[in-house]
Write a protein that binds this DNA or RNA. Structure first.
Length: 295
DNA sequence: TCGCAGGTGGTCG
DNA sequence: CGACCACCTGCG
């Protein structure tokens, strides 16, 4: 399969997108490109500077035009005008202006719901290298093939059907720790509801962001933070504002909100970031991670 | 050795 | 409700 080229990408940076903690299945290559898998396909993405830096093209290798239009355009949220959102967010917010500068090319990936649920249940009280390892092992042992790229075979996240039939023992090689029973139980809950199609339909029908959040909270291992991540990355609910230790820190140091007061943080996000809360969160997150110990 | 890593469930007051 | 605290695991 050949390459597909999407010309003139705006507000787009591979590191900002794939290394900001929203996804766990993409890895940076020596040349700065990213190889990974989603929606049952494995591809490589790179950026190419055209006409002396006047323009940036996105090159997707191992991808047809149909695949790009049906899968990757939506996955990368390419139809959204992030330039406009950035201008809105920074209008009267010097802190955000600074954060946006550092993560100017962030985009919220529209990931598959089930994969997002699994990924963020695993992410709790865990670190990124280990999260990646757990997911990798899980797909290799129990997932369907998702094609290959660069001589390496990729697999999908095991379906709820498969996962619901597993025991904690079966999952031991994945080193999930106490999260293993959470995954199995969540898979069973999905099956009881009639499968992911049904779950997606029910979430689609949820009348408010609060209803979406409460529905997600109903799954085992899904607390406030994980529910917000699932809403944001798996459902495209861009108003969702996940509050983790980093966001706590940045909201405290930069906006002066009490680090324990998540209510106040949510209220602040709702008032100041509104429907773009999740995107704002990503800028803040990327920004504070970049600062390291300076805060 | 022990604390920590993008939290959550269970238990108490 | 809100405040605690144990919790798999691997790394520094």
């Amino acid at each position: 399969m050949g390459k597909y080229i999407y010309e003139d990408v705006k507000d787009f940076n591979l590191d900002h997108i794939f290394d900001c903690g929203q996804c766990f299945r993409w890895s940076r290559q020596e040349d700065g490109s990213y190889t990974g898998t989603a929606m049952g396909k494995a591809v490589n993405m790179s950026l190419k500077s055209v006409s002396e830096g006047q323009r940036l093209d996105l090159v997707v290798d191992n991808c047809t035009e149909d695949d790009f239009k049906q899968i990757w355009g939506g996955y990368l949220d390419l139809d959204r005008d992030y330039g406009y959102i950035k201008r809105t967010l920074t209008e009267s917010d010097q802190v955000m202006a600074k954060a946006v500068e550092g993560g100017q090319g962030i985009r919220i990936l529209r990931q598959e719901l089930w994969e997002t649920m699994i990924s963020f249940i695993i992410s709790q009280n865990n670190n990124i290298p280990r999260i990646k390892g757990c997911i990798e092992k899980l797909t290799q042992l129990f997932g369907e093939p998702a094609g290959e790229y660069g001589g390496r075979e990729y697999f999908n996240i095991p379906s709820p059907e498969v996962m619901a039939g597993l025991s904690a023992e079966d999952l031991a090689p994945c080193r999930l720790g106490y999260r293993a029973p959470y995954l199995v139980e969540t898979a069973r809950q999905v099956m009881e509801k009639g499968g992911m199609k049904k779950v997606e339909a029910e979430l689609e029908a949820a009348p408010t962001p609060e209803a979406v959040y409460e529905y997600l909270r109903g799954f085992k291992g899904v607390g406030p933070k994980v529910a917000s991540c699932i809403a944001l990355f798996g459902l495209g609910r861009l108003e969702a504002f996940p509050i983790d230790v980093w966001v706590r820190r940045v909201m405290n140091r930069l906006y002066g909100i009490d680090e324990k007061d998540t209510k106040a943080m949510n209220a602040y996000a709702m008032e100041h970031f509104g429907e773009n809360g999740g995107i704002a969160q990503q800028y803040l997150f990327y920004y504070i991670r970049g600062l390291g110990d300076q805060l």
